[in-house]
Design a protein around this nucleic acid. Sequence first.
DNA 1: CGCACGGTTGACCTGTATCAAGCCGGGTGG
DNA 2: CCACCCGGCTTGATACAGGTCAACCGTGCG
Lengths: 263, 263
Amino acid sequence: MAVPELKAVASDLAPSSQAHSTTVIPISSKNLKVACSACNLRELCIPLGLNPDELDQIDSVVNLRRKVKKGMLLFRSGERFASLFAIRSGFFKSYVASEDGHAQVTGFQMAGEVLGLDGISTDYHTCNAIALEDAEVCLMPFNRIEELSREILSLQRHLHKIMSREIVRENDILVLLGSMRSEARLAAFLLNLMARMHARGFSDSQLVLRMTREEIGSYLGLKLETVSRVFSKLSLDGILEVDKRNIRILRNDLLRDIVARAD
Amino acid sequence: MAVPELKAVASDLAPSSQAHSTTVIPISSKNLKVACSACNLRELCIPLGLNPDELDQIDSVVNLRRKVKKGMLLFRSGERFASLFAIRSGFFKSYVASEDGHAQVTGFQMAGEVLGLDGISTDYHTCNAIALEDAEVCLMPFNRIEELSREILSLQRHLHKIMSREIVRENDILVLLGSMRSEARLAAFLLNLMARMHARGFSDSQLVLRMTREEIGSYLGLKLETVSRVFSKLSLDGILEVDKRNIRILRNDLLRDIVARAD
DNA sequence: CGCACGGTTGACCTGTATCAAGCCGGGTGG
DNA sequence: CCACCCGGCTTGATACAGGTCAACCGTGCG
């Protein structure tokens, strides 16, 4: 398989909850620019081909935005689930923490992706989501989503596809963790990140990592030293240019080879 | 976290497809015993608290059963998705196969669990499901499910919870693969299997594995020799009694310790 | 200024993979 | 009915990828 699409979703939040976030911005008819119907990320969050009436209904669901400063939690494991979050801007990691303090990163999420799907299962979050850079999210109260998706067929379908896509993505990571070696894991990870950035209009050969080596390692089942060494090796091999968190892909083809050869 | 609930779902199928399955049994009012309303697995597949009318509607959705002989595919990657499958009896593994022949097991499924969720995403299967023992599944055409879940609120909710549960389960495996060592992986795997069997009325200390060491290894990211060695070690330590595929857990507490200590 | 954090690199250790031999039990064909 | 074979499993010897521990560097920040 090519470029496993690594996990891009995570959990959910208690909208009324305390400490983590900073500002909550009501969306009124006055700041139309944030309404879904006018959002440039629209095609990622909501289905295409809605009529104006339906778009209005969607706008009425997505009734709050929230700013999340770098390092702040969007939600944490154990909190009550009420809303899904569509990321408007910024970058998140989601992770589960064992009681002993060890944290396993389960995904990285960027603009246009949805956080919180795992909370539907039990009505409580099972993981944490933290902003890796200043971010802004749209709150989508889940009971309103369910309500509306009973009326708008394409919204129902869209919701199901988003959830299923998440299942498929995790499947891909299982393949990665179950059968690839360090170099292939990092190669697949970079290609995936790059593809997602490219789909958002960024360069397809250059990117700025938002996460530390340790976070990458946790996600890929490697130690930070190993991640660092693999970066060095790929750099030495002329496949990447690595300057701290600035990565430039020089030989996309070779990167793909590494993944393909690994199974 | 205790006993990660390992993956218990997988992909989907083209109901009209050719080779794999054996018998298709229409469900009529004559063989009521298979109708959902009378199925003893009901509480696993469909929501509780439905009124008779709603139960009738559900029965009308689940309109076919299919027998799948041991070793036969229920569906394969690339096939068109049309239905979810509820397992009535038997045991499945799901896996994704790379072009080069390598197979990564992504889950084991037993009675009462649902197969096919990953197909919703693109309308095509992304993995394969194969029966590890003679099995019988109920076909649930997905467009009918979507239709009905617009009318029956609790069905809609149930569907969403099932999908979300699958996401959470895969999260748990990520933790397992990302941070546990062989002994802890196998311990978590056994505890999970045991719990699922126990929930179905079987012993909570004894089980018969339906899969080979190699399949366990693929699932856990280990080689079959390693799986075998870990079984031997756990046996030597007096934690298990292992006779080929018959496993008896002697020290559940120690097994849990192994998982807990591993993070 | 100095400290803390993220990153790199080196030396060494270890858990798991790999390769190989052999066992057991069940199915098949002579 | 027996011999054989084959698939699944166990066990041993050895190799190696990645983990662990440690030193060091640069940079941003209090």
